[in-house]
Every structure is written in structure tokens, then in C-alpha cells.
């Protein structure tokens, strides 16, 4: 555990220093890769228990809207507080469904989560108070009571994303290595045996679902702070699909894979959308097929701990 913390903190420091050298466009790209990566990390967490959510857009949007509303309506502007609030809001929103969903597996779990996210999408589009399908903008957050200067905004938002995702990743790694984390992996393989050994599969799965929701909500808050604008698309199925894409690319073996894969996706997105705007998803699809063929356990399996 100590090693995990030291390793995580060192990586955060390295990224904070590296950020000083990065051009503006790359800083933004990394910020989005971190924000989206933490949502996919939630799916990785679910995958370790044997399920995949096709509706993480739900928690992504819940966290994003919560952060934006807290900032606009209640004047809560601290970036780290908003990140935590985004996570908490997503947990609150999904808690009523956790036990129900914990009983489903495979395609049923995937479709139910997808359905929930599309319900939220439908509601958001119809809600004029939240800007309907156009969404609304959010002003730049503050950090520890300080305003963020224009010239530094890119770097500061990047740093916030790096620190927040760093903390969440350390937490995720500790969880993966915990006894509960190990039992999650066992559930993926043999639920019957786990029940027979005296642990509640439903409770583990429900807790995993809520942990993933927290990660998704925090990711949503980080994303909206970087983008400054939120819209119902956060909860649309294509957004959820990208999170799944990244999670499968990453594989369920580790934490860093989710961020590496998320970075790859942002890179491909940013280049392909300028060169072949209509076919870039196809490029992603082909890339995913190659990964599944040659690295069935994900790109993350290349990163040895």
C-alpha cells in the first residue's frame, strides 16, 4: 500500500512538472484524457467483477451537471470540492438502482445501464431550466480560494485533473489490491463459490457499481471544468461507448492502462477529426479490433507492475 502511494505521488509530481513543458493544445488534450480516463477506470473496476456498463454517460453527466449547477447556482467554485461533489452526486443519483443492477450480468447489465443513461439524456434535453439540448456554460473554477489567471488557466486545470485523477487512481489501486478487490475478481470467475464461501456477491457488485459511479461523476466534473460548457450529450450513448472503448482497450489488469488508452483515444480523436472528420470512428473501430486480437487482456497488460 505504501508503495502504491509513493508510486502514485511520484507520477503526479512528474506529470505536474512535465505539464510546464507541454504546449497548450496538448495540455488540454491531457486534461480531457485524465477526466475521461477516470470514468473508464470506473468501467475497469466493474470489469474486474465481470460486468461492463454501457451507460457510464449517466454518471458522467450527473457529475458534470452537479458541478456546473453548484458553481452557477450556489457559488461553490473550488475545483477540488466540485470534483468530489460531482462524484458524490453521481453516487446519490445511482444509489437507488445499485442493488437492482447488482443482480444482473452480461448484456442485461449493459443494456439496463444504457437505458438509464438514455432516460437521463431524454430528461436533460427536455429540461429548459438546464438549457435543454444546448446545455449551459459554467465559469472557470477557483483553486483553494484563488482565482485562476487567464494565462495559467490551461496549466492549472491540467494540474487539477492530474492531482484529482492521481488521488482517485491511488484509491483504485488500493481497492484492486484489497481483499474485496480480490473477491471481485473471484466473482468474475465463480459467483456460486463466493456465495458458498460466505460473501455476498450482490453487496460486492452494488458497492462496485457505486464506486464506479463516483469515478464517473468525478470525471464529469473534471471534464466540465476544462470544457466550460455542459450539454445532454454527456449522457448520450456514444459518449458511454467511448468510455467502454477505452476500458476494453485498457483491460482490467491495472489502473494506468485506462489513462494510457484514454490518451490514445483523445489523440486519435483530435488528429482524425481534423483530417478525416467522417471516418475517424471507423479508425477507432479498426484499432480496437487489432487490440482485441493481439492483446485480449487490453493494452494495460503490457504495463507490468
Amino acid at each position: 500500500m505504501k508503495r502504491t502511494v509513493w508510486f502514485g505521488v511520484s507520477l503526479v509530481v512528474i506529470f505536474l512538472i512535465a505539464g510546464l513543458l507541454l504546449p497548450k493544445w496538448l495540455l488540454f488534450l491531457c486534461t480531457m484524457a485524465a477526466a475521461n480516463g477516470v470514468v473508464s477506470l470506473g468501467i475497469v473496476l466493474l470489469m474486474r467483477g465481470g460486468v461492463v456498463s454501457f451507460g457510464q454517460g449517466l454518471v458522467f453527466a450527473a457529475g458534470g451537471y452537479a458541478a456546473a449547477l453548484l458553481s452557477n447556482k450556489l457559488g461553490v467554485t473550488d475545483a477540488l470540492l466540485l470534483t468530489a461533489a460531482g462524484g458524490a452526486a453521481a453516487v446519490l443519483m445511482t444509489a437507488p438502482f445499485a442493488v437492482l443492477l447488482a443482480r444482473y450480468r452480461g448484456i442485461f447489465f449493459a443494456m439496463l445501464t444504457l437505458a438509464l443513461s438514455m432516460v437521463l439524456y431524454g430528461v436533460l434535453v427536455k429540461m429548459d431550466a438546464l438549457g435543454g439540448s444546448d446545455g449551459f456554460t459554467m465559469s472557470r473554477p477557483t483553486l483553494l480560494g484563488m482565482k485562476i489567471a487567464d494565462a495559467w488557466s490551461g496549466y492549472v486545470l491540467y494540474s487539477i485533473a492530474v492531482v484529482a485523477t492521481g488521488l482517485l487512481s491511488i484509491g483504485a489501486r488500493i481497492y484492486f489490491d484489497s481483499s474485496r478487490g480480490l473477491v471481485s475478481l473471484a466473482i468474475r470467475e465463480n459467483e456460486l463459490r463466493v456465495e458458498y464461501l460466505g460473501a455476498s456477491v450482490t453487496r460486492v457488485m452494488a458497492a462496485n457499481f457505486l464506486l464506479a459511479a463516483f469515478l464517473g461523476g468525478a470525471g464529469g466534473a473534471l471534464a466540465i471544468m476544462a470544457l466550460g460548457h455542459i450539454e445532454p450529450n454527456f449522457s448520450y450513448w456514444t459518449t458511454s461507448g467511448e468510455f467502454v472503448f477505452v476500458a476494453i482497450l485498457a483491460g482490467h489488469t491495472g489502473v494506468l492502462g485506462a489513462f494510457a488508452a484514454s490518451f490514445v483515444l483523445e489523440l486519435v480523436r483530435s488528429f482524425s477529426s481534423s483530417y478525416f472528420p467522417n471516418t475517424w470512428q471507423m479508425a477507432l473501430g479498426i484499432f480496437l479490433l487489432i487490440v482485441i486480437r493481439f492483446f485480449p487482456r487490453g493494452l494495460g497488460s503490457l504495463i507490468k507492475k
Binding site: I174, S179, L182, A186, G198
Partner: peptide, 20 residues
Amino acid sequence: DNILVAAACGGEALSFWQPA
């Protein structure tokens, strides 16, 4: 790991942070 799973499942409460 199979034995560790068995031991963890039988324990009091599954810990979120105590290493397996």
C-alpha cells in the same frame, strides 16, 4: 489466490483497503 479468496470471503467484513 484461491485460498486467499476463501479466507477473505469468510472474514468479518470485506475490506476496501486492507491488502489481500
